[in-house]
Every structure is written in structure tokens, then in C-alpha cells.
Simulated assay, not measured.
Amino acid sequence: MTADLEEKTDRYERLLADALDAAEPAAPKETPLEEGATECLEMARSYLEDGRHFRETGDLVNALASFSYGHGWLDAGARLGVLSVPRDGHLFTV
């Protein structure tokens, strides 16, 4: 079971890191929507950092949860249209 958790945590960390690299703000400048896009990206980055911290301390369950939550912020931003993301491939569900 630990090997499965390690593999899944690795996979979700890569997915979040790659998704963060691919996501870009798509909202009009100097609007509340731009603030929302910025917040989505900041939250995703924070969850990536948190997940890496949890991994370093051996807490794979919270690492996996952090990576998943981070990706959720990106997916939400993409679905709301405040983030531009690739529509093909495996990074996003939109």
C-alpha cells in the first residue's frame, strides 16, 4: 500500500507542477477577475509547496491531499475562464 501511495503522490506532484507551468491568467487586466486568476495561481503554488513540505517530513497522505487541492484551484480557474490552460492532453479536465 505504501508503494501505491508513493506512486500516486509522485504522479500528482508532477501533474500539479506541469499544470502550473501551463496555466496563464486569462482575465481582463485590473479587474476582480484578474484578482481571481492571481489567487487561483497563488493557491496552487502554495499547495505545491505545502505538499513538498509534507513529503519531506514523510507525510504522504497530506502531501497527496495538498497536490490534489492545488490542482483543484487550477481546474476551478480554468472552468471559470480566468485561467487559460491547454485543452488537450492530461493536465486539465476542461
Results as ranks from 00 to 15, higher is better:
3 A>V: 13
3 A>E: 15
3 A>L: 14
3 A>F: 11
4 D>I: 01
4 D>L: 10
4 D>H: 07
4 D>C: 03
4 D>P: 02
4 D>W: 01
5 L>A: 12
5 L>E: 12
6 E>S: 06
6 E>Y: 04
6 E>Q: 15
7 E>G: 00
7 E>P: 01
8 K>Y: 06
9 T>N: 03
9 T>K: 02
10 D>Y: 06
10 D>L: 10
11 R>G: 05
11 R>Q: 12
11 R>C: 07
11 R>S: 13
12 Y>A: 10
12 Y>G: 00
12 Y>H: 14
13 E>P: 06
13 E>D: 10
13 E>T: 07
14 R>W: 02
14 R>I: 02
14 R>S: 08
15 L>E: 00
15 L>S: 04
16 L>W: 02
16 L>Y: 06
17 A>N: 11
17 A>H: 10
17 A>M: 05
17 A>L: 03
18 D>E: 15
18 D>A: 15
18 D>P: 00
19 A>D: 08
19 A>C: 07
19 A>N: 11
19 A>K: 11
20 L>V: 03
20 L>G: 09
21 D>R: 14
22 A>S: 12
22 A>C: 07
23 A>R: 04
23 A>D: 12
23 A>H: 09
23 A>E: 09
24 E>V: 10
24 E>K: 15
24 E>W: 01
24 E>M: 09
25 P>I: 13
25 P>F: 07
25 P>L: 13
25 P>Q: 11
26 A>W: 05
26 A>P: 04
26 A>Y: 08
26 A>L: 09
27 A>K: 06
27 A>M: 03
27 A>N: 04
28 P>W: 00
28 P>K: 03
29 K>I: 03
29 K>H: 13
29 K>G: 09
29 K>W: 04
30 E>G: 02
30 E>D: 15
30 E>V: 03
31 T>M: 10
31 T>D: 13
32 P>Y: 14
32 P>R: 15
34 E>G: 03
35 E>H: 06
35 E>L: 10
35 E>Q: 12
35 E>I: 05
35 E>C: 00
35 E>T: 08
36 G>S: 12
36 G>T: 13
38 T>Y: 07
38 T>A: 08
38 T>E: 14
38 T>P: 03
39 E>L: 14
39 E>R: 15
40 C>L: 08
40 C>P: 00
40 C>R: 14
41 L>D: 06
42 E>T: 09
43 M>H: 11
43 M>S: 12
44 A>T: 02
44 A>L: 02
44 A>M: 03
44 A>E: 00
45 R>E: 14
45 R>F: 02
45 R>Y: 03
45 R>K: 14
45 R>A: 11
46 S>P: 00
47 Y>C: 00
47 Y>E: 04
47 Y>V: 01
47 Y>R: 10
48 L>F: 05
49 E>V: 09
49 E>L: 08
49 E>T: 12
49 E>N: 12
50 D>S: 13
50 D>L: 13
51 G>A: 09
51 G>E: 08
51 G>K: 08
